[in-house]
Design a protein around this nucleic acid. Structure first.
Lengths: 141, 141
DNA sequence: AGCATTTACTTAGTGTTACTAAGCAAATCG
DNA sequence: CGATTTGCTTAGTAACACTAAGTAAATGCT
C-alpha cells in the first residue's frame, strides 16, 4: 500500500504540475494571467469584495493580492472604493470591461479544455469527473 | 454531454490549479523551487543533458532554462561543461550536493503528498490512480 | 476621553520563472 | 569561403508569491 501510494503520488504530482503549466501556456495575447482572471471570476460571482476576502479566496497574502488588484484596476477591469461603514476597508468591484474580459477568457479556456476532454472515452471522462473533487480536496488541505 | 464536459472541465481546471499551487506552498526554507527541482530530478534520472534537452523536457524556452540552470550552478547543484565533440553544446550534470538536495526535497514532498493520499479511501485512491495518467496526457497535448 | 492594541490595507524589496529579442560562437552546407 | 543553421547566453519585461515596514482606522480598556 505504501509503495502503491508512492507511485500514485509521484504520478499525480507530475500530472498536476504539467497540466497546470499547460493551462497557463494556453493564454492568449491580451488575456489576463490566471491569478488575475481568478479575481475577476470570483468578483463576478460574488459582487464587491474586500482585499482580505479576495486574498483569502485565492490563498495568498494581502500584499500579493494588493498588487494583483492594482494591476487589474490599472487595466480598468475593476474599481476600488472605500467602505462607508469602515474606512479601513476597500471594496473591489468588477467593471463592465472586466466582466467581458473575464467572460471571453473563460470561454476560450473552456473551449480548449472541452476539446481536450472530448478526445477522451466516456470511461476516461468519468474517471476524471470522479477525481476532480478529490483533487480539490487535496488542494484545500 | 457538452453540458457535462463543461462542468467536469471547470471543476478540473479549478482543482488542478489549486492543487498545483498547494504543492508550491509546501516548499521548505532552503529547498529549490519546482522548476529547478525538476531539472535536478531529470538530470539524476538521465545523467548529463544539454540545454536544449533540458528546455524541451520542461516545455520552456532556452532562455528560461538558461536562467534556471544558471541559478542551480551558482548554488553548486550542477556543473556545466562544453561538449568535446560539438563546442556549441553545453552539458549539465548533477553534483553530489545537487543530488542530495533533490533527494531530500523529493522525500519531503512525497511524504506530504502520501500523508494526504493516505487520508483517502481505497476507492478514492483508485479514482486518482486512474485519472493521473489521463491528466498527464492532457498536459502533454 | 485618551491611549494601547488590533485590524485593514499599501508599498517596496526580493526571488522565481516564463517569454522575447538580440547577439555570439560553432557547425554545416552549397 | 560565405551563407545559413544550430546551440547557447543575456538583458529586458511581466507576473506573482513572500516578507517587512509603514499608515490609517477601528476597537477595547482604564
Amino acid at each position: 500500500m505504501a509503495e502503491h501510494t508512492d507511485d500514485v503520488g509521484a504520478e499525480l504530482r507530475r500530472a498536476v504540475t504539467r497540466l497546470a503549466s499547460r493551462f497557463r501556456s494556453e493564454r492568449l495575447e491580451g488575456e489576463v494571467p490566471d491569478a488575475a482572471l481568478q479575481v475577476l471570476v470570483v468578483l463576478e460571482k460574488r459582487g464587491g469584495m474586500s482585499l482580505t476576502e479576495l486574498a483569502a479566496s485565492a490563498h495568498v497574502t494581502l500584499g500579493s493580492m494588493s498588487q494583483t488588484v492594482r494591476r487589474l484596476e490599472a487595466l480598468g477591469h475593476l474599481t476600488k472604493s472605500r467602505d462607508d461603514v469602515d474606512r479601513r476597508r476597500v471594496v473591489f468591484q468588477l467593471t463592465a470591461q472586466g466582466s467581458s474580459a473575464a467572460d471571453a477568457s473563460l470561454r476560450h479556456r473552456r473551449d480548449w479544455l472541452n476539446a481536450r476532454l472530448a478526445e477522451l472515452t466516456e470511461d476516461e471522462l468519468a474517471d476524471i469527473a470522479r477525481a476532480a473533487p478529490l483533487l480539490l480536496r487535496l488542494g484545500d488541505s
